[in-house]
Simulated assay, not measured.
Amino acid sequence: MDLHLQGKVAVVTGASKGIGFCTALQLAKEGVHVVICARGEKHLEVAAASIKQLTGADVLVVPADIMKEQDCRDVIEKAVAKFGRIDILVNNAGTSSAHSFEQVTTELWQADLDLKLFGAVQCAKYAVPYMKQAGGGSIVNVTAVLAKTPPANSLPTSVSRAAGLALTKAMSKDLGQYNIRVNAVCIGLIRSDQIEKRWKSQAPDLSWEDYSKEVGQSIPLGRIGDTEEAANVITFLASEAASYVSGTAINIDGGSGEAL
């Protein structure tokens, strides 16, 4: 299937590793000019070198702290200065912060919302005018399955992620008239640096495949998901293959979620 992405320009936040990196790589494989940002410049440079080596794509590296509005603006402005337009924004930057209600301080609430909610808001704020100029675009907000059915001890992440779902739906209503589609993906248990550290610490004698199956026994598909599997869905949503998909949230969780 031709995703009609050749020559498009994408900004991916939190792209130095994990889902963000894999998404940038998959987009580059489809002929997209990618702009990657994160706080760690060293990790970004390694990621960019890898993407260039594997795809030959032109990659722009912009170190940025998405919690700062000026940094969000700089990422978008530098992307446009380099490539002349923006067609795709993947709001992926985020961390896991899960505690009981009484453990969450005011500072932790604010930091989580600044990163996961307002980071996406500010990046979109500066990207949307350029998408309108280009005749449309696609925004994909990366959230989590617990946003739909928050368990105990999931704060503040479950709340900020739920806000991201509301943001996605509201933006899709406002921006559809400009042919700008806004969707979300809800991530379940996906291979990450944190999970790999847990694997090497808890079960160093097991292969990744065996560890994945053991941990994933409660998941209908019976394993931990791969980052590439998440990146593939994000790339689809960003593409013209999903041209009539907007305002929705897709679970990438192996069937473990309790809500559609």
Rank of each mutant, 00 (worst) to 15 (best):
A134W: 08
G135C: 05
L115S: 10
A98K: 12
A79Q: 11
D87T: 01
I139D: 06
N92Q: 09
L60V: 07
Q103N: 10
N92T: 09
I66Y: 06
D74K: 07
H99W: 15
E77L: 14
S100Y: 15
Q110V: 08
Q133A: 12
A93W: 06
A127V: 07
P63M: 05
V80E: 14
L117E: 02
G84F: 07
I139L: 07
I88V: 15
Q133T: 09
V62E: 07
N91I: 12
G137I: 01
F101E: 09
T105Q: 07
S100P: 05
A79L: 10
L115F: 11
P63H: 05
A134S: 12
A127H: 09
F118R: 01
V121R: 01
A81H: 13
K132Q: 14
S96G: 13
V140F: 11
Q103W: 03
K125V: 12
L60N: 08
S97T: 10
A98F: 07
V104Q: 13
E77K: 14
V59F: 03
V140W: 13
V59K: 02
V75Y: 02
M131H: 03
I76F: 14
A93K: 02
V80W: 15
T106C: 14
N141V: 03
Q103P: 00
V121D: 02
L89T: 10
S96T: 13
F83S: 09
A64Q: 00
M131V: 05
K116F: 02
M67H: 12
P129R: 07
V62I: 12
Q133G: 01
F118T: 00
V90T: 05
I66P: 00
T106I: 15
A134G: 06
Q110A: 12
K132D: 02
G84H: 06
K68Y: 08
D74Q: 05
K68P: 04
F118S: 03
C72R: 01
T105S: 15
I76P: 14
T143Q: 11
M67E: 15
N91E: 10
A120T: 04
Q110C: 10
Y126E: 11
S97Y: 10
T95C: 11
V61P: 00
V61E: 00
D65A: 15
V62A: 08
V128A: 07
V121C: 05
K68M: 11
G137M: 03
G135T: 04
L117G: 01
